[in-house]
Computed example of a mutant assay.
Amino acid sequence: MASRHRTPRGPEVVLSTGASSALLVIYTERLDACHDFYCGLGLELVREQHGSGPVHYAVELAGGMVLELYPARPGHATGRLRLGFTVPASDRFRGGEHRLSDPDGRVVVVEVIEGP
Rank of each mutant, 00 (worst) to 15 (best):
M1Y: 07
M1I: 05
R9E: 06
V14I: 08
L15S: 00
T17C: 07
G18D: 14
S20C: 05
L23C: 03
L23I: 03
L23H: 15
L24M: 05
E29D: 15
R30W: 07
L31G: 02
L31F: 03
A33R: 10
A33M: 02
A33G: 04
H35P: 00
Y38Q: 05
Y38F: 15
C39P: 01
L41D: 06
G42N: 09
R47N: 10
R47S: 14
R47H: 13
E48I: 01
Q49L: 00
H56E: 15
Y57Q: 02
Y57M: 02
A58L: 03
L61A: 13
A62K: 12
A62T: 14
M65I: 00
L67M: 13
L67K: 05
L67E: 09
Y70P: 00
G79A: 08
R82Q: 14
G84Y: 11
F85Q: 05
F85R: 04
T86H: 13
P88A: 15
A89T: 12
D91M: 10
R92N: 09
F93C: 14
G95I: 00
G96S: 01
G96N: 02
L100I: 06
D102C: 03
P103E: 11
V109N: 12
V110D: 11
V112F: 08
V112D: 05
G115F: 07
